[in-house]
Design a protein around this nucleic acid. Sequence first.
RNA 1: GUGAUUGUAGCUCAGUUGGUUAGAGCACUGGAUUGUGGUUCCAGGGGUCGGGGGUUCGAAUCCCCUCAUUCACCCCA
Length: 451
Amino acid sequence: MKPSIPKGTRDFGPTEVLKRRYIIDTIRKVYEEYGYQPLETPAMENLNTLMGKYGDEGDKLLFRVLNQGQKVKKADLTALEEGNLAKFSNSLAERGLRYDLTIPFARYVVMNQHQLTFPFKRYQIQPVWRGDRPQKGRYREFFQCDADVVGSNSLLNEAELVQVFNKVYSQLDISVTVRLNNRKVLAGIADVIGCEEKMMDITIAIDKLDKIGLEGVQKELSNRGLGDDEIKEVSNFLAIEGDIPTKLSQLENLLATSETGMKGVAELKTLFHYISQVAIQVDVELDVTLARGLNYYTGTIFEVVANDVKMGSISGGGRYDDLTGTFGLPGVSGVGISFGLDRVYDVMEELGKFETISINTTQAMFINFGGETEAFAFKCLQELRKAGVPAEIYPDNAKMKKQMKYANTKQIPFVIFTGSEEMETGMLGIKNMETGEQEKVAVNELVNYLA
RNA sequence: GUGAUUGUAGCUCAGUUGGUUAGAGCACUGGAUUGUGGUUCCAGGGGUCGGGGGUUCGAAUCCCCUCAUUCACCCCA
């Protein structure tokens, strides 16, 4: 048979793993610097934990884990006959692969509420699964790097998360724009035009502004059932321009009649004030058209895009006022962000940011000359490892050329010769693979030489 | 779920209006060089042309089906 892996999944070879680890380590260190603590949850959750949390689209994209053993008898064949495929497929599975890290976190918080000290700050770097059609920057298995804080309404949390974006992307040397908005502002827009129930339709439409333009948005609003006057009012919001204080005051004017909207503006004002107090190198924008994010966001919304690469958002996040409510713990507010590891990787690859990262860890390799010298080299090797120097010996007495080629391909910086002559004199030949120079070094000097 | 795209050696790709034994570069193996890689030269191995069916004297090439890929829409990291 021809070997293959499932659609939208990937193998990661040694160099890819090292590059991915570099990104993960960068994010993890910044998270820890800001007081977030690690958490890991199972790949699988009970389906009822997951269902209904991500909208209809999300439910469709959930990977279900088929029931096994006696549980297959639970299959609802009546539903199948009636053509109710959704009901039928739900009867086949009770568990599913996690779709994001936020819902499992909420579940964890509720289950452990009495053990946790609030505000609780956690980070989580694990894979998630979605049954999308793969395309650029979109995979069926991908890593998210989340940081969330629950049990605090303070906008200082939001400000710190912007700092986290700033620090991580500065360290990774990616030029990005952090876009900010507030769900309450979006609700306010629907509010002032008297279409509260159409908030989702409006946000989905205006979110496409940069993609389909003003006329496209207006057309979409019309398709979604808005009248001409209402569309005109929405257009006023799309026309907001200028620096952040200007935008905020324009928003204030337009939203004056909406309590919710004004609250959103006030929150944005506070957040931008906090941000202005600290050093931020990346671009931070207020974008009224930013609507993206999952259904449960209620306050601040974050999105990060790379400035020099055409790719969807590489990070996102937001505040959710009642995330744990569905699990029986109402009134706990949280805010969090997520880095899309795979997209960050793709961006860095496209920008050539990995060229300076070393793909090798082995510092020295012993050539294997066979016979007694093999054991001698093996013994010398132990000295290096004991001193913490990553080293290896070529395991077979292969041709010199083959061994050298192996060291060269693996980019091992030093090759050590321990033939019969070296064994007698105790002076080992050590070759610098970069310069091609070779020297004689005593066995007990090896560690110092390589240090 | 919708619409396109591309499938030829391990990888990246040529392959003319359908015409002899399907090619190149890189990679790999051996040799020039029996204790010295990365440069050079020589030689070699490696192909169900994604799969199935059809048209034809003849198909990598044209038609149909199918599978896979990539991209876009929807939605999202």
